[in-house]
Structure formats: structure tokens, C-alpha cells
Design a binder for these strands. Structure first.
Lengths: 336, 336
DNA sequence: TTGTAAGCGTTATCAC
DNA sequence: GTGATAACGCTTACAA
């Protein structure tokens, strides 16, 4: 058995409440008794039972970070940034990976509903469904969404403005003289894809171009689908001269397919990818990418959550951040 | 306030214990009362407070997976595999990233010591230090180490046989006619590096070659260090014709440096990298790698932990798994 | 089959 | 400044 507060109390010959006060730095303990207690606790390597503590105080100082996708380097970066913020504020993070499975999300949601964590940050994922929505109705459930949309925006959220991002990318490619720009987005289960194509269309129109719906592709957000979509495209009627790929892994697959086909980037096809990470930077040639403001996403979401936990959030907050276009070789026309 | 077991009991007009039994599928409840209780619980979306439950039953059905390094795709694969195993067995995983910081590891260790989790799996990291060792003395602390060594092997562990791996890699490169093989390993803070160089030396000797200590490099296990070490090497007296790089990220940096220097792989330098993951497969040319048996690592470690938790582990167990050499272009001599 | 009550290890509210 | 004691929400003997 582990040593408990009661044991310490006995050894120090004081009441349990005194031990609790002493060990938690609360007022109302004599300096000398306090020191005595701390000494004994240290000597016996006392560790408060956090379950009991959480039960009594209704506070665990832990938050859950619920990841939709662990293979995305961007998400990992957000997590690392969140960890720093949490540490600074005395919170521990527990990470939960759902792999985009609603069932797993539900099961991790019980961490919140059963008071094991003080709040949760959801990173990415499908359009918010019933279970999450329902959970959000309880004011005890402190929830912040990152890069995730709901039909009705009940949630405190931090979002990347994908529309803006794609808009920028299209503008850049047009500037470079590419005129048949294909948009390779994800499957439309989260409204975010609609945003992307909205940005795409707006940019083309604003620059005086026509929209060709056949150049908009919706595929699964993985590497293989990125690869396959290229094979499909070059069999098609209208061959683009540039690609905007809006997910990290499809970008990889797309580039692989282009190179495997014996084509050159950017000479045959320009590419704007997604995510300024080790993957896109390792690839040859260096990829122009839309880059998420990962640190800002983490900072805002953590601070929002803190406010929710401390009941300091007056109105619902939504923060929208703009991705950056990082221009490298893959989108620079040789005719420029 | 959330609804509690007590509330359900009142609504169903039965005792709390009956509710508990009904909801936990324990014997000793009439089928009809059971159904009634379950119905009420469902109707009110009852979620047992896991803190209270854990406190009372001394069991949380959660395990901690403590990651030394989140940027390593291999580790991520192990985690994903562990998640599957956990789910199958009714456990939830909480992920903790230490970034190789002892302080963070200590703080996550309290999850175990304060009974918030039933056990912990440590993946990678430095040579086991005092805090972990001390924790392991308590039989309540169920600990399994993956790819991590301790001076004294008190721990239930699952290990990759790096020595074997490097041995294979050297053999392969010699077969291909490369004779000046450099070993680029990590800093020697975890004994694992010693294993690697042991395998390296043994292979050379067994094949009748001499060992040149100047061809063994110990660097930080990140991309930049991998890059820099190449620049350093080509300035040196003895230029290798092949590299074995034993960490995922240094492999990336090394390859970048070689290509940046205008050299070709494998024509100028053969490369055997580490980790069969998206990074090493994206790189041009396709990399020969030593590949960890990630699924087996996960399976063994989870099953070991389960046995520990259920007190079914008789003697301390150590399982050693051999990495696979996956041969691709980067190590195939053109003179063969 | 069901209820009573003790107990898990804390914190918090009172008295003193 | 300190000590009793209730409370947190659940599980589990034991009794009925």
C-alpha cells in the first residue's frame, strides 16, 4: 500500500486537515508544523492520490487533447505547443487519438463527463455530431474546438481560415502564369472543404477567370488517395498545370505520383501543398505550402479553455487565424 | 451538477448498491430491477464518476503510454498499435509526451504513483534513472519498458535488438562491395548506442575487416545533427563509401546533406537508414532501412502490462525482437 | 434479490 | 493555528 495523508498525519501527530493545508501551501498552519509535515512527507515519498483529490476538490488539473489524426505533423506540432502552455499553467495534458472514429471520440468524451479532466481541446475531425453537441450543453464540460466546425457554432473555437489560404495560393499560381489550377481537397464531411473550394472559386473569379468544376477533386485525406487522384487526373479531359493540395498527406502522395509519372515539378506541374513540416520539406523539390499558424492555434485554444475552466469566459469566442503561404521552388514558373 | 448514482437510486427507488451492481453487470440483481435501472440511467445520460470509481475500486482501466519522442513516426506507429490492443481489452490509453525531459517524465510518473492509471508503458528514452527505478520498487506500479534500457534490468521490457540490426546492415553493405562503412548513431546516454556499435564491430570482424573508430559517429538524434555530421565527415581524413544511420531523424538530415553536397545515393554514398515510415519512403532514392517490428513491440508490451496488472506475471520478462532489413535502392551498388 | 454501511484518500467547513 | 467531521461518488462486504 502506498502512504496516505492519514499516515502522515499520524506520524506528525496532527490532524489530516493540517497535513492537507501544509502540503497545499494553504494559510492557517504554523511555519514549524508545516516544515515538520513537509519533511515527513518527503521522507516517505508521499504522493497524494489524485483520484481522491479530484473527487474532493472537483478539479484535476488535467486536460484532454483529443486528436483526430496522429499522422499529421501539423497536429503533432499543435500538441507540442499546447504542452508548453499547459506546463506553464500547472496543467497536465493527456492525449487521446481518435483516428477520426466517432466511437473513440465518444469514449474519450467520457473523460470529460466523468470529471477525469477539467476540460478538453478537440483538434480537427469531422463535423461536430450529436454526442459532442450534447456534451457541450453541460456547462461543466469545458470544450474548445480547433480546426473543427459545427453546423451551429455553439463552441468556443479556434480556426484556420482555409478559404483565405486557398485564395492566396490561387493568386500566387496565377501570378506565376499557371492558368489551369486543380484543387485537391478532402472529402466533404466537415464543411472545411466547402471553405476551401469557396476560396478557390473566389480567387479565380476575382482574377477574372472562369471556374471549371472538373478541376475540383474531393478525396480521402491520405497519401494513397493523393497518389491515385493524379493518375486519374492525367487520364482526364482537361489537364491542369498546377495543383493545390490541401492536406498534408495527400500532398505527399500527389507529389510522388507526379514524379513517378516522369513529370517534373514545377515545369510540368506546379504544386502548392499543405503544412510546413518535415515531410513537405524533405520532398524534392522544396514545396510551396500553406502553413498553419500552429503556435497561435495552440495558444488561443489553451487560453480559451483556461477561461472556460475558470468561468472567466463571458461570451462565446471564435478566433480565426490565417495560414501563411510559404513560397518555394515547386510553384515558381520557369517562364517568369 | 451531473447526475450521480445516488440520484439514479432515488429515482429507481432502490439502494445505491443495487444500482452499482446493475450498471456494472454484476450478479445479484433481479432482471426486472436491472432493466429498470439501466433504463433510467440511459434516460438521464448517467456517466459514472471515474474518479470515485477508481478511488473505491482501486482500478481505473486506464494506462499511460509515456513517449520519449513524438516526432518519431516509429513511436507513433507503436502507439497506434497499442491503442488497438487496449481497446480490445477494455482499457483506455492516455498518451504522455516527455520530449526526453526527465522532469516531464517524473511528472507523468505521478499518474502511476497517484493511482490515476493502472500501469504505464514507457517508449524509448534515456537510460533509466533513479525516479523510475524507485517507482519500480513498488509492486503497485506496473511498468513496462519498450526500447529502453536500465543498468540493472529490473524491468519487464520489450526491446529491439539494435546490435543484430546493425550487424545485418553491415553485412549487406559489405556484400554490395562497400568497404568503408560509417556508423552514425545517437549520443550514448542510453546504452542502446553501445549495442549498435557492438553490432557494427562484430559484423566487420566476422567478415574479416578492421575496425576504424573514426568511422563511428555519435550525434544528437535530430535532423540537423544528421545534416551537419555529413559536412564534418567529408572534411575528414577518411571518407566512407556507405552510411548506416540508426535514428529516424538523423537519417533524413544525412540524406539531405549528401544530396545538397551534389553527391548521389548510392553511387557516391550508400545509405542504410532507420525506420520504415513515410519519411524514409518519401525520400529520393528509396531508402534501405532497418525496420522496427512495431506491432510486435506493441503486442508484447501491452500483454506484459496486462499480466502485471492482473498479477499474472510470475517472473520478470524480457522480450527481444529483431529488426528487419528492408533493402531498397539506396544501398545497392551499381557495380554489382 | 436487495439494503445497510463502511471505506477509498482527499478537501473544506466548521468549531475551538 | 489546529482538529473534528462531513462530503465527494462510487464499490463491496455483510446483513437482511
Amino acid at each position: 500500500m502506498q502512504i496516505t495523508l492519514k499516515d502522515i498525519a499520524r506520524m506528525a501527530d496532527v490532524a489530516e486537515s493540517t497535513v492537507s493545508r501544509a502540503l497545499n501551501n494553504k494559510p492557517g498552519v504554523g511555519e514549524d508544523t508545516k516544515l515538520k509535515i513537509i519533511k515527513i512527507a518527503k521522507k516517505h515519498n508521499y504522493r497524494p492520490n489524485q483520484l481522491a483529490r479530484g473527487l474532493a476538490a472537483n478539479k484535476t488539473n488535467m486536460i484532454a487533447v483529443i486528436l483526430s489524426e496522429m499522422d499529421s505533423p501539423g497536429n503533432i506540432e499543435i500538441v507540442k505547443s499546447l504542452e508548453k502552455a499547459a506546463e506553464k499553467n500547472g496543467y497536465q495534458i493527456i492525449l487521446c487519438n481518435t483516428n477520426n472514429q466517432t466511437e473513440k471520440e465518444k469514449s474519450y468524451l467520457t473523460l470529460l463527463e466523468s470529471n477525469q479532466v477539467d476540460g478538453a481541446i478537440f483538434i480537427g475531425g469531422k463535423l461536430v455530431e450529436g454526442h459532442l453537441l450534447r456534451a457541450s450543453f453541460s456547462p461543466e464540460n469545458n470544450i474548445v474546438l480547433v480546426n473543427r466546425l459545427a453546423e451551429e457554432n455553439f463552441f468556443t473555437s479556434v480556426l484556420t481560415d482555409y478559404s483565405q489560404g486557398v485564395y492566396k495560393a490561387v493568386g500566387h499560381l496565377l501570378d506565376q502564369g499557371f492558368e489551369n489550377i486543380a484543387l485537391v481537397g478532402g472529402e466533404d464531411y466537415n464543411l472545411i472543404e466547402e471553405e476551401k473550394s469557396a476560396g478557390y472559386k473566389a480567387a479565380l473569379i476575382d482574377h477574372g477567370y472562369q471556374i471549371n468544376e472538373d478541376l475540383i477533386f474531393s478525396i480521402k485525406a491520405d497519401r494513397k488517395s493523393g497518389y491515385n487522384v493524379f493518375l486519374e487526373i492525367i487520364e482526364g479531359d482537361i489537364i491542369p498545370d498546377a495543383f493545390i493540395s490541401t492536406s498534408e498527406l495527400t500532398t505527399i502522395g500527389l507529389v510522388e505520383a507526379i514524379k513517378m509519372g516522369g513529370y517534373f515539378i514545377p515545369d510540368d506541374f506546379a504544386v502548392v501543398g499543405y503544412g510546413d513540416n518535415i515531410l513537405t520539406s524533405v520532398i524534392d523539390p522544396p514545396l510551396t505550402v500553406l502553413s498553419e499558424p500552429v503556435d497561435a492555434l495552440a495558444d488561443y485554444s489553451f487560453n480559451f479553455l483556461l477561461k472556460l475552466i475558470n468561468k472567466k469566459m463571458k461570451d462565446q469566442q471564435i478566433k480565426v487565424l490565417t495560414p501563411e503561404l510559404i513560397i518555394r521552388e515547386s510553384s515558381i514558373s520557369k517562364y517568369n
